[in-house]
Design a protein around this nucleic acid. Sequence first.
DNA 1: CGGAGACATTGATGAGTGTCAATGTCTTGT
DNA 2: ACAAGACATTGACACTCATCAATGTCTCCG
Lengths: 114, 114
Amino acid sequence: MARSVQPETTTIVQCCGVVGDPALTVEQADSLAAAFAALADPARLRVLSLIATSEAGEVCACDLVGPVGKSQPTVSHHLKVLREAGLVTSDKRGVWMWYRVVPERLVELRDALA
Amino acid sequence: MARSVQPETTTIVQCCGVVGDPALTVEQADSLAAAFAALADPARLRVLSLIATSEAGEVCACDLVGPVGKSQPTVSHHLKVLREAGLVTSDKRGVWMWYRVVPERLVELRDALA
DNA sequence: CGGAGACATTGATGAGTGTCAATGTCTTGT
DNA sequence: ACAAGACATTGACACTCATCAATGTCTCCG
């Protein structure tokens, strides 16, 4: 049971005992991994950062293509990934698409790192 | 300058103005994306969770193969990814490899989600 | 109605990745 | 020295993904 670095009772060092099995369920791991996968791209992090640090709290998609340095379809793709991961919401007003972050989702991920 | 949802002065709705350029540098985005990529896998999240929730604060590699449900080389590969991402440290004692989390690294990632 | 602009979608391609079987490298005990 | 066990590495394969060019779908204005 007790794992000892220096053997205490005998010269046999124990290992490979029992671990807390329900550290993280497979479903929880799948859900969290999908969320972190959405953050595992520099272009997406920059997009998210641009939206999060905008003074108005929301950013038009046309304001993202330039700073990110990727083509318009690529930025659109990344925005779709972020939206499907629940990290941003989109709101079409006229010709433009406005994006804003979902703070609750970020808190959810922060809590997972504890 | 001012982005207005309902036009106020004229019927022209402005868009595509200026955004805070240094929301996140390319270097910062690359570093963060690499760290999040290490978390973007269910098996790796389970490994990290098993280590983090261990009562001793460290876990022998042999204790991970079973609960994770992957082969020994696969678990070893995931541990290598976590180590290279700075999320865990390894410590060889005798025949066994002991792993423990790096709390500072987790804090670093949590701070990035703000 | 017709043109222009904003954004999304599709298709294709090259790079990256998770997985395991087989094998290699240590360390320990006999 | 030899055998056994723990862990890492290699090679191979299937799969996913980031990217862009081309195209499609809207909305607005003249």
